[in-house]
């Protein structure tokens, strides 16, 4: 028994060491980034030198970022926005390299330098602003709820005891828990990695409500389901970049605001039937 315990401790220590080494491998880059040559390593110049802007986008959210199964290209409003930013930085809108991200992977991939920007229905929150730079919002939308027609819900007040499906990294969860508290009902939450999985769960009756931002939800309405008129805390999407890279954040913010001021943003949104 004693021997067993000793072995256990030995392997556990080894595991911790290995993991921390791996971990420090990750954070050692941070010192390099924040170090003396920060201006060179982590800036717009770095992207210019590389000649391509690496952007994390959704590949399973129609209209925002969806992989076209015929061409294999990712298409949507957020990809168009990424192209505009590439145009500003590199002078060529085609110089982007997109990579699929999920709610789970977008933060870490930004941290480890795999991508320069996240444009992936990323809602701006105070908490997230402490970890990443966000541009001013490029899209604003309230949290809405998709339900089965035959479930008989007329509004949020009917949903005492209901199970609400939300996407991981749940800002909609916060909005709804707050609203539920205000009107004095209790609701349960189930979190899923992607919207198609949420829709499948609604169809099979696993969840009573599929709740996400209205514009995304619109893509999932069918004959048997409807979007309730209730709207909750407006969600503002922003372009996220690494906290240390203020240079890039400023450039991105300028592009977003210029597009908004010139009215071009509205044209781009209209192209994807958003708003």
């Amino acid at each position: 028994m004693k021997n067993f315990f000793k072995k256990f401790v030995a392997v556990a220590t080894m595991a911790t060491m290995l993991l921390t080494t791996a971990a420090c491998g990750g954070s050692q880059e941070a010192p390099a980034d924040g170090g003396a040559d920060a201006a060179v390593v982590d800036s717009v110049q770095k992207i210019k030198d590389r000649g391509v802007l690496k952007v994390g986008v959704k590949v399973d959210v129609p209209k925002f970022g969806y992989k076209n199964t015929s061409t294999g290209e990712v298409e949507g409003f957020e990809i168009d926005l990424a192209k505009k930013i590439a145009g500003e930085i590199l002078g060529d809108e085609s110089k982007i390299e997109v990579q699929a991200v999920t709610a789970k992977t977008r933060g870490p991939l930004l941290d480890n330098g795999e991508i320069d920007l996240v444009i992936a229905t990323f809602t701006i929150t105070e908490e997230r602003k402490e970890t990443y730079n966000f541009s001013d919002p490029y899209f604003t939308d309230g949290v809405a709820m998709l339900v089965k027609k035959d479930a008989g819900f007329t509004g949020f007040k009917d949903m005492d005891g209901a199970t609400i499906g939300v996407a991981q990294s749940a800002t909609s969860k916060d909005a709804l828990s707050k609203a539920a508290e205000e009107i004095g009902i209790t609701v349960n939450f189930s979190e899923f990695a992607s919207y198609p999985e949420l829709k499948a769960a609604l169809d099979s009756g696993r969840i009573d409500v599929f709740s996400v931002d209205g514009a995304i939800l619109a893509g999932y309405v069918d004959e048997s389901s409807e979007i309730l008129p209730d709207r909750f805390d407006p969600q503002e999407y922003g372009v996220a970049s690494k906290k240390s890279n203020t240079d890039l954040a400023e450039t991105v913010n300028k592009v977003v605001n210029d597009l908004k001021a010139s009215g071009e943003m509205d044209t781009m949104l209209a192209k994807w039937e958003l708003k």
């Binding site: 954070s27 941070a30 010192p31 170090g35 941290d111």
Partner: peptide, 12 residues
């Protein structure tokens, strides 16, 4: 600088 990066890093 390195210290700050560590404090703000994913393992801070």
């Amino acid at each position: 600088m390195m210290f700050r990066a560590f404090m703000d890093g994913p393992f801070g």
